[in-house]
Write a protein that binds this DNA or RNA. Structure first.
Lengths: 342, 342
DNA sequence: ACCAGCATTCAAAGCGCTTTGGCTTGGCGC
DNA sequence: GCGCCAAGCCAAAGCGCTTTGAATGCTGGT
């Protein structure tokens, strides 16, 4: 059933039927009712391809997926997606994943825009002065950043968590517990979140006359293995830390393994705090010693991103509002007062 | 630049230009060259929306994403996606994720078909007689199943790994090492892969006059926590197993935790084998005791699914070919001969 | 009685591509 | 010299929707 048939059936023009269905005001309410009613009865659904050609609107949001043999999609992505999908579902909003060479995403963004493939996109894992943000800004495609990209002289809409605040707070707690030598096992420091976390740590330390020596911070891809390596390195160093802050639960697994191998104990010899994005398949309370965490549901963020994106598309949100979520600090068994200096 | 402009520029009809570009035979080779050349020079790209309306082809493949507050997307999904995306990228093929209520996916599939939103879909985590497979078959939308759905009287195309063979082999090895009491910590046994794995274990045991008591198998969602719980349960039982087969690395983490808590050792008291889908962020060789695994890259499967889907769309593959990959059995330190009976 | 103005409705023109059905050629066989 | 056929091109008709510009019928003001 298409518009033509429906309009003939109602003995109305396609114009009127189309307008009635799309809520235009210049249609008699009585007529509108008839139309809406008939449409429902006959299960009429406007053909999206046709609508798309006519309007340029697709009813889809996009995401450029960085790929490549050496590129691993972050497992956080899937959790984010759960939230996004969960919200988008209610709006029959689909998500288009456009795979792109991780090193050359610009072409893909341009293609998406030129082809009008989506109404908006979201961007994740941004870096300072992220080229994607700049590009999207000039291309004029509506977008929302999950995270933040510092260093622009224009505003853009984003949703981020207070990474700096979270790590500042966690560090402050460590200091109050008497820790003086604190190490940071962070994510890739080309990304903003890692930079913010490090900044939070440094600020808290500086506020207490302490510093974060370069050899006490590691910034790498967030795998179990790199967590392990970083932990071994600092713990076997001459001035081993008594507390470690860690950017992910997965890395924390590696840290725990290193600690165990070295015959140390948590929290006796080492206090450990990690950031928890909230996975159902790995929970901090289930670590051999329950892990203290800075916690923020990345899934909730996904849902919120979908919500805001939809709001933008329907004109309910405009401007370039940045939204920053506070982060919980959840204390569990993995932290304790600093051990007496050996 | 659109077709009309391009054809005027070339002083040819739109028909001819269109045909030249799409490789139709009734065009003079000389003319075709001119056209192709001009198109490239002016960067002409056919408008996908228009083409889509005219042909019904979208150049996209779809995936119905089950969502819901209680639904967790499997972290395996992201790894699969890496492979899929990596392959699809070269073909400028996008992936459309249509979120659906996990309990009510049929509506979404129907919508996708009615709206001609994608050219094909893939289905994952199939169950026996999976309703999605039956539905797609009747709807006539090209599809490919990642995994298998047993119990149909018709054939359909799929790509699966030899789950039964893998677990059969692993079990056989355990038996040869003298193990007699073997437990299985499996995934949700409503899904085919879990059923096949259990079958593999039972077959190997039966082949040696052994059995798999019901209380030695657990079939749950694959989280660290459920791995832990299942392991505690069997290990604290009256007839504790000396070997455990586990369906995922993440569950294996929980198993290892349970073993440690109980003061047991691997492989001294317990041999452990787990299935490894190959993640970059958690590797079996990095377990405190390197984990023996049945290994199959889910990422490679993603790439292959993309490859086959593309082949089907371009008519290079037809029929309902099922493809089953063998699984590696990788022996590491976590297995040993069965301990002398206590 | 006449006209501006509003509320409704409509025919037709896109949107940019593919595809059907025909219309020229020029070369060939006879 | 004529008919036929294949090669090569084209005009125009979709695909199914939105939107422009215009027409119609009424109402109220003068």
């Amino acid at each position: 059933m298409n518009l033509k048939q429906l309009s003939q059936m109602l003995e109305l023009s396609q114009t009127t039927v189309s307008r009635a269905l799309n809520g235009y005001p210049e249609v008699n309410e009585e007529t509108r009712r008839r139309v809406v009613d008939a449409a429902k009865r006959h299960g009429y659904r406007p053909n999206p391809s046709a609508r798309r050609l006519a309007t340029g609107k697709t009813g889809m949001i996009g995401y450029v997926l960085p790929t490549g043999a050496a590129v691993d999609i972050d497992p956080h992505f899937v959790e984010f997606l759960s939230g996004l999908g969960d919200y988008a579902r209610a709006h029959e909003l689909d998500l288009v994943l456009s795979p792109a060479d991780a090193e050359e995403q610009e072409t893909t963004y341009r293609r998406i825009v030129a082809n009008k493939q989506v109404d908006a996109v979201y961007v994740s894992s941004p870096r300072p002065q992220d080229s994607r943000v700049a590009l999207l800004d000039t291309l004029g495609l509506p977008f929302l950043v999950h995270g933040r990209s510092d260093g622009f002289d224009f505003d853009y809409p984003y949703l981020d968590i207070d990474n700096e605040g979270a790590f500042h707070e966690a560090t402050r707690l460590m200091i109050q517990l008497g820790h003086r030598r604190i190490a940071l096992i962070n994510g890739d420091d080309r990304e903003t979140f890692a930079i913010h976390r490090e900044r939070g740590v440094r600020r808290a330390l500086a506020g207490n006359g302490l510093a974060l020596p370069d050899d006490q911070v590691s910034s790498t891809v967030m795998t179990e293995e790199s967590g392990y390596r970083a932990a071994r390195r600092v713990l076997e160093g001459s001035d081993a830390p008594t507390a470690i802050l860690c950017s992910s639960l997965i890395m924390a697994l590696g840290v725990v393994r290193a600690v165990r191998e070295l015959g140390l104990t948590i929290p006796g010899d080492l206090s450990l705090v990690a950031h928890d994005d909230v996975f159902s398949w790995l929970k901090p309370e289930n670590f051999s010693v329950p892990l203290s965490t800075t916690r923020s549901s990345i899934r909730a963020a996904g849902a919120r991103v979908a919500e805001r994106l939809i709001a933008r598309l329907s004109g309910l949100e405009d401007g370039a509002r940045g939204e920053v979520w506070p982060v919980d600090l959840v204390v569990r068994g993995s932290i304790a007062g600093a051990p007496a200096r050996a």
